[in-house]
Design a protein around this nucleic acid. Structure first.
Lengths: 331, 331
DNA sequence: CTGAAAGCGCTTACAG
DNA sequence: CTGAAAGCGCTTACAG
């Protein structure tokens, strides 16, 4: 790989002149410039980003820390963030934590090494302390999907309203026994969905019906077995709310296996709709959240924080997106 | 952020001694070592990875270049590759190309900058030249899912056998008019699926029935509209093979909308099964490919190439995984 | 308009 | 066992 020195030698100038020519900083005689560009081309020189980063204290790289990507909203978030970052000249590092605090902690630890300028994170809430340390040591941090720490910026969906609106909608369709399949209430999005659900039920004078089973939460199996359990305990259930699509898909399958007809016998709604809901044999009514937009905006917010001049860093900002109800066949 | 110098000052030794202590290279007196570790802890010092990389010519970072991640096998591949890389002390950069050669070219260009040690790529085949240049300039390269360039290592599934076995299976179930929904034959996986399909049909004395519509290939819509088109032209079709799950899901939905019963009226099979096939209301028979394993092995192969001593780089290796037929409800 | 020098934070022969 | 020096590839004041 050619270096600045190679280019300088070939163009018969000093490296500093080459640097100035390439960065358009300071005057360089047009003829010299031409000679330099020629040499650059001939050697197919590309500046070493590591050396630039080391010298300038900027890496033009962000990290995205998420639990996983397969069949979750995080696939969209990561993809959108990467696109936004790329368009702004940043590279994107990815870290999957599987929601394991140990992996999360280790990954964040590695990011303390001057690798990246900022971190986009959907964390477990077990590393808030570390995250604040990173932030005060100069790294930009934006929380995405999950807001666990009010002192750090965030871009999320309004999950509480999702929960509330879903109940309201189902009640308007005549449902009176509405079960909720949710997730770890230690994580903000699940907790908020529950709060919305609970508040709405109170308003409508209905009873809370929840359940959980011993499976990973964000899965088909969880949806499937929670549905079984709900029906075992409440045979007259007339609606199921699932926190995420993949649970809703599990619910649909469980209902089919019980020969229950959707939506005739029971209605199903997802509280975090994604593209997949529209593709099912019984398409899934959902409160759709703009995951792509969330990823994009979060990356933008992060990069703006990175590029804000030292000392004029913006205070924590919290952006929340409304979900929109999309009626399909399951309700 | 504390630097080596800060640690050295606090421990009253030279930076070189600190470096040796931390890397366990060369002798350091136990007492000195203790003093150094103490200083490291007190300052919560972390070595600057950029500086290390610049000095050692290693970045401990790989890039994964894929078209997209949402609802594709690439989500698994990327996740597995990241996990494998992380376990070996490497960070993972992600680049989505949307199969746009311009984006791909630009992304690869950026990677020439000494950012990464190696590249894992599912490319468009439009950048083979550039890829070979990168490789000969010293970057490790492994192709994943798509093998477009025989001179570079690869880890893929045996798509031709997928196509062949699917026909054989359907024929054994009595199917005689088997339609294929496929994709861009410029891409190896699609081309190979077609070859397997074609070869099997010939052996069984059956007629090729293919179609394509003007939509992005790897989508629900493509599967949906291809199914419509197939049925319009061949009302007596008795089986549909879809290149990927998401097309198969589109096919199932199109058949439902035509009030055709699966598998009674027509059988459906996916040639690249993933987890999702098992979760559907009509679960999807598929040739399942081990996408997670593919990602893992590809990352491992890449890192082995990176870490092979200069001059002893292994020749191009090609690893191919067999798919396994999983019978479900759709066939 | 151009060059020489210092320095980003580290590692690694080389003396001693 | 330890320190001084050179250097990875770049940028940026500072002279001239």
């Amino acid at each position: 790989m050619a270096t600045l020195k190679d280019v300088a030698k070939r163009a018969c100038v000093d490296v500093s002149t080459v640097s100035r020519a390439l960065n358009n900083s300071g005057y360089v005689h047009p003829d010299t410039k031409a000679r330099i560009y020629k040499a650059v081309k001939e050697l197919s020189y590309r500046p070493n980003v590591l050396a630039q980063g080391l010298r300038q204290g900027k890496r033009h790289t962000i990290a995205v820390v998420v639990p996983r990507m397969n069949l979750t909203t995080f696939a969209d978030v990561v993809q959108a963030a990467e696109e936004e970052a790329r368009n702004r000249g940043y590279a994107t590092l990815i870290c999957n934590t599987e929601d394991d605090p140990k992996i999360e902690q280790e990954s964040l630890g590695r990011l303390r090494n001057g690798f990246v300028d900022g971190i986009l994170i959907a964390g477990t809430s077990h590393c808030s302390r570390l995250l604040r340390d990173l932030h005060s040591s100069g790294l930009a941090v934006v929380q995405v999907i999950r807001r666990q720490e009010p002192r750090l910026s965030s871009v999320v969906a309004d999950y509480q309203t999702c929960g509330y609106e879903a109940v309201k909608y189902l009640a308007s369709r005549g449902c009176r026994r509405i079960g909720l399949i949710n997730g770890d209430s230690g994580l903000a999005p699940y907790r908020e969905r529950y709060q919305g659900y609970s508040r709405a039920l109170k308003e409508f004078g209905l009873e809370e019906i929840t359940v959980s089973v011993d499976k990973p939460v964000n899965t088909f199996e969880y949806g499937y077995f929670c549905t079984e359990s709900l029906l075992d305990q409440h045979p007259h259930l007339d609606a199921i709310m699932a926190a995420v699509d993949i649970q809703g898909i599990g619910a649909l399958r469980a209902l089919k296996d019980r020969q229950m007809s959707v939506p005739r016998d029971i209605r199903v709604i997802s509280l975090t709709g994604n593209a997949i809901g529209d593709m099912l044999e019984t398409s899934l009514t959902a409160l759709e959240i703009p995951s792509y937009e969330i990823g994009r905006k979060a990356a933008r917010m992060l990069i703006e924080e990175i590029e804000a001049p030292e000392g004029a860093k913006p205070p924590a900002q919290h952006l929340s997106f409304a979900a929109t109800l999309v009626e399909r066949e399951s309700s």
